[in-house]
Nucleic acid binder design. Structure first.
Lengths: 213, 213
DNA sequence: AATCGTTTGAAACTTACGTTTGCAAGGCGC
DNA sequence: GCGCCTTGCAAACGTAAGTTTCAAACGATT
């Protein structure tokens, strides 16, 4: 049982439990007993609970941002192919690529992202912003010419509208699928939902700009 | 200092603090000291912290749902005027009417709604669902003919996409406005944002259905 | 095989939480 | 004026949290 095993076991357990219950509602004792490690291991390996939370985000965001960055680089070499849809597809494809078809992992990630926004946890937001702010900026730079006629202000808000749509949907993915089953009789396949989600965001981004131009 | 004063002071403080920090992150001691009342007052008047959380929601939702219901009744008498925009306007107008132009109160409400979804707090979701589920059903019934060509499944998902857009935006309203100030130099007026938000949702609702028909 | 830094383990520590208790103060009918 | 119910207050209780401690076990290096 080497160091790496313990650290990863803690991260695995923390990731799942945080996503399921939130940060404050998940105790270190629950994490460590789920992971099958000693309580003191968290403070030994990470220093504090806050640092553990950030480590969970880092393990998630690091490969994802790398993947997005790479895909944006590819897209930039075909400037005529840059549009709202292709830019959105960069995001969904990157998530697919990083997590495979492991929906649990992907929805856990989205729930964590939602928690980072919704729960106060300022240190999480600051950590994410300082670590991955550049990637967001690059994305915004590419999105701008894809939405001609939109002012900077509109661009900002519409982007965050779309971001909110995605984060809210994915972070409540399981609950929503359960509700869908009740209301419509179909859970909806992941592909169905992602494709409609993308259409929704694209339509919102494009048409809201034009209508208010 | 009669009963009502104490109860309302507690609700006021709890509402603001919950919205700002979340439920688990807000202690009864913080609430009572902010409200200027004794610690035991919460358990005396409400019974428990959970009951206090529900009371906060009830005070918010009760007048809002009444207002929405009334406006839907009016709208139903002009069936040819029922469309996506008018239905969305029922919601935004109702919020305006209930909270006036008190943005603090309205954004607090949205943050609480977002928290109810995002934080696990099952008892909050159950409370809201059992208490106000009928109103949501009525709204959905009116929305369906406004989006012809959409299947039940699509209707369900697009509605929740739009819901997510609104909840995410409003529940992070202050943070987003601060970011907007940094990025664009404008905070954005409330009317500007609400109007663009509505356009975004309407465009998403309508076009996503048509594209995937 | 001994040593030294690293990691684990069980337990204790400190603090903060939600809740409960016991009593004092105030208002109201009789 | 006396009892009675409601409300307010200070203090304490029990629990669970994050963190710290310190000795034991481990692993690589010599």
């Amino acid at each position: 049982m080497a160091q790496k095993e313990t650290v990863e076991r803690i991260l695995d357990a923390a990731e799942a439990l945080f996503a399921e219950r939130g940060f404050a509602e998940t105790s270190l004792r629950t994490i460590t007993s789920t992971a099958g490690v000693n309580l003191a291991a968290v403070n030994y390996h990470f220093g504090s609970k806050k640092a553990l939370i950030q480590a969970v985000f880092e393990r998630f965001l690091e490969p994802l941002v790398t993947e997005i960055d790479q895909r944006l680089g590819v897209l930039e070499q075909d400037p005529e192919n840059i549009n709202v849809e292709s830019l959105l597809k960069v995001l969904s494809s990157s998530i697919y690529d990083v997590h495979g078809r492991n929906t649990n992992r992907a929805t856990a990630f989205m729930r964590l992202l939602g928690l980072a926004y919704t729960q106060s946890q300022a240190h999480v937001r600051n950590f994410i912003a300082s670590r991955y702010g550049d990637a967001f900026q690059r994305y915004a730079r590419l999105l701008k010419p894809a939405l001609p006629g939109a002012t900077d202000q509109e661009l900002f808000w519409h982007t965050h509208f779309a971001l909110g749509t995605a984060i809210f949907t994915m972070s409540n993915f399981d609950a929503l699928r359960a509700m869908a089953m009740n209301d419509t009789g179909h859970r909806g396949s992941v592909d169905f939902i992602v494709s409609h989600l993308t259409s929704f965001m694209a339509a919102g981004l494009r048409n809201a700009s034009h209508e208010n131009a």
